[in-house]
Design a protein around this nucleic acid. Structure first.
Lengths: 187, 187
DNA sequence: AAGATATATATCGACTCCGAGGTAGAACAC
DNA sequence: GTGTTCTACCTCGGAGTCGATATATATCTT
């Protein structure tokens, strides 16, 4: 997840580690800062893998910065992750939202649409969150805990909101992909 | 998170590992199954810490089950985690929803209200998710990516839904806590 | 009769990430 | 002038989790 976020941000424009840290924190955990001990070793690994290069530049107020730039290899890797995300990126909300934040780097509307459809399919499964002693699902109105009731209520509302957006977005992307295909045939 | 979920479920009624696995999967990742290699060592650790005991019982169709029961020590531990959750349990949606699923095990409405208020306070912070090259926040309507736009839109809608529910719930709990205090003073 | 599937438990190596610690310079408050 | 905060980088140990692998039984399918 962190690797995707780093390459995704660098695809927009070059950044140094400290800046990256703040951007990832704002996006991923909203406000949960990403630890230095996580960020810097990950940058190092991406550099060793040839996904990014660094240039030392003078710091604005303090120590010199390492300006990071994404390479062609890094761009390819990012696109592979976005095009064929692992299942957990579809089902884990945190990871999904990070993926969504960089999906525009996949420049083919058809490919974007396919990823959104995977999420859409996942959200379609009705949520059975709680079960009784015999293993039978307990419907929201039978739950004794008001917190569990609220949890399911919120969960349902959130899902409907996202499904709504997904449907509109998928339709729009498919329309555009259709035009692109038609234009390509004409030419 | 997994430890809290295990003790939380066992607080309702005794369960064996396999059953626990399915319940945690349904709740936590919604559908993301928790790996065996995660569950069983965690159960073992909780047992060693005196938080649960196990009794071997014949399996319904297969190998013998280890029926797990929570101890007084385990109940105390669970309540401590619920009463004073670490910051990440407030800010990470996945973890927060797990906490919410077991908050009814904290039987004092005042304590429950305090936890909800912490979440409420966190949600009040306006989300600045994306920044431009100069580090200035980019408002949703200025974002070029429709995915980022959707992301912020959904995020906002979700927050409002949860805030609404939290406010109602906190008011109800405080009302009840007031009554309890009044009744206690009368007696 | 053989193979797949569901139940049920357990270990091990790998990976991700965090938290605590260290280095260092500039700005700002007291 | 001294302490604190913010910028900026880095390492090490540990916690948590996953995926692969192993074992075993019962049922259902072919």
């Amino acid at each position: 997840m962190l690797k995707m976020a780093i390459l995704g941000f660098l695809r927009d424009f070059p950044l140094h580690g400290y800046d990256l840290k703040n951007r990832v924190a704002a996006l991923a955990g909203h406000v949960r800062p990403i630890a230095d001990g996580t960020l810097y070793p990950t940058i190092k690994k991406l550099e060793e893998a040839g996904c990014l290069t660094r240039r030392t530049a003078p710091g604005s107020v303090a120590a010199p910065r390492h300006m990071l730039e994404i390479t062609q290899e890094g761009t390819d890797q990012l696109r592979r992750w976005l095009r064929s995300p692992e299942p957990v990126f579809i089902t884990d909300d945190n990871k999904w939202y990070v993926l969504l934040a960089f999906l525009h780097h996949l420049d083919n509307p058809r490919e974007q649409s396919i990823v959104l459809a995977r999420r859409r399919e996942f959200l379609d499964q009705p949520a059975q969150l709680f079960f009784d002693e015999q293993g039978r699902p307990v419907p929201p109105d039978r739950l004794e805990s008001p917190f569990r009731k609220g949890l399911m209520q919120i969960h349902r509302s959130v899902n409907l909101t996202e499904i709504d957006w997904l449907d509109g977005q998928i339709a729009e992307l498919d329309r555009r992909a259709g035009y692109t295909a038609a234009t390509a045939r004409e030419a």
